[in-house]
Design a protein around this nucleic acid. Sequence first.
DNA 1: ATGAAAGCGCTAACAC
DNA 2: GTGTTAGCGCTTTCAT
Lengths: 320, 320
Amino acid sequence: MKKITLKDIAQRLGVTVGTVSHVLNGIDDISPDTRDRVLAAAKEMGYIPNISAASLRSGRSNTIAIIIPDISNPHIAFQIKLIEEKLKENNYTAIILNTDEDESAEYNAIVTACSRNVDGILICPSQRSRDNIRFLQTVEIPYVLIGRSFAEGDSDYVCADDEKGGRLAGEWLISKGCRKPVYIGAYKYIETSVQRFKGLCSAFSEIGVELTDKHFFETSPKGDLTRKAYEGLIASGVEFDSIVAFSDYIAFEIMTLVPRSVYVIGFDAVNTHLHIPCHHSSVGMTGNGWADTALQFLFDKIDGSDDSHRHLVDVKLYEF
Amino acid sequence: MKKITLKDIAQRLGVTVGTVSHVLNGIDDISPDTRDRVLAAAKEMGYIPNISAASLRSGRSNTIAIIIPDISNPHIAFQIKLIEEKLKENNYTAIILNTDEDESAEYNAIVTACSRNVDGILICPSQRSRDNIRFLQTVEIPYVLIGRSFAEGDSDYVCADDEKGGRLAGEWLISKGCRKPVYIGAYKYIETSVQRFKGLCSAFSEIGVELTDKHFFETSPKGDLTRKAYEGLIASGVEFDSIVAFSDYIAFEIMTLVPRSVYVIGFDAVNTHLHIPCHHSSVGMTGNGWADTALQFLFDKIDGSDDSHRHLVDVKLYEF
DNA sequence: ATGAAAGCGCTAACAC
DNA sequence: GTGTTAGCGCTTTCAT
């Protein structure tokens, strides 16, 4: 079946493509009569707009790119789902690009986004360096950081109140009688990871337990790195009665490795949508997390707003 | 920063856009000298191709659409991740469209895919009716069904061997001494769901336990439907000592509701990548599931192959 | 080996 | 209220 174009509709009706275009784009300068005829013909002929053509001409694509470490992380997948819903309501489409926390994959993702003329980018930056964010700024596409921000820097962002989160995790452990926590977190160049540790330290500091760098073990949910990190913890000889994990994704794996007597707490509260059938504590964002706000910010910026868009989503402790 | 176009490169070098285009597309009819100069200039000027323009002209977009019920289902998210990796290697990009099992959302997804000139579609069909698949056929975009197939019909597909899966689940329950299983599955218009039940029935039939329609309870992982289905099971008065759930996504939720003495088994074996810290049995695909094969099939069809592409991925029982 | 030119389908500026 | 026209950036055909 040949693809129907504006021209086909115009010819059939004896009007010009401009007229048809105006009708289909809801530009209200066409007589009700022609309008109805165009609408009817478009429907009957099964017209489907060619976004490539529209985008080439108009410079807008009604597409955004979502650049994230890993869609298979349940927390991220859920946020993406929420974003996609809102996007649909606004007649937008998303392209999802995974970086696996890799700098060059992230760079390629940004290039891909550009080459597809996306109107905006939501990005959870790998943060190993700032080169990619600088590059992102040079291409002049509106963007909002999601889930991670830079301590200094002029990027707009929406993320969890991670320091508070770390504190809540610490207070929960303290309430359980724990005095020797360790932290198995994401790499130290990831702000979010550092902030959570900072909050944890401050909670324990209040009861006179001082945590240092030796209580911070780095990992990533890739491959068997988490198991390796846990083995590193054991090998280090550091004593512990509890573990704070950077995310539930990591916490779950740790819970499969650790004796039951050790308290484990994670972040993200994925149980709010994934019903994991075992007791588990987690610090997560209130409400629906950053999805809605991030998209609102991005749309604002696409619409030309120059305001600063920064927001910390409040967190709380969840027990499942 | 102004976007660099082929024209900019051509002008700077005193050649034509056609020449530049050939070089950048690797069409080997340009002298090594010009080729190197073009490549150098493109790199230095930070050229990023405009896919909208290329797509408009060539009819190809190097984009595929992935139409799925719900990206927040961990099993799906993981398969998508694998697909996205392969896509990247082939210089393709994916747009992800969630249907929530809704017919009209699915229809819209297909239209979106068309309007973006995708080269192919991977779709896990909602199956409430066949209208959308018929529509998909009329638009003449190569497509492959993933995870669900139609008993009759000429669509290509890659999915799990669901009947065998159901049988394995049944045999496992039997080995545990269960004699009164019930099935909490996806709607009966979903082939996959029916096939799994069929396999379950045949396993129990062999030991003289006949299951009927009253042992089949419908649900969906949306909202609190699973809890409702479980309440329906209780209200029905049907006796049971075990539950077979359509997916781990559903099984996990059921495990939070059911007494510990009841055996629960799900499908998908999400534990292979999501380390859920509790004992759980599941029937899942061997290897990496349908991701690789589905994409291979789709690429084949995009390349013009007319062969039939149908494949059942083998399944096995996982105990975690 | 390179140039010239057409045209993909659409939007937008302007003319009538 | 509708027609006319240019042109977005690219690929592709044909000429040289």
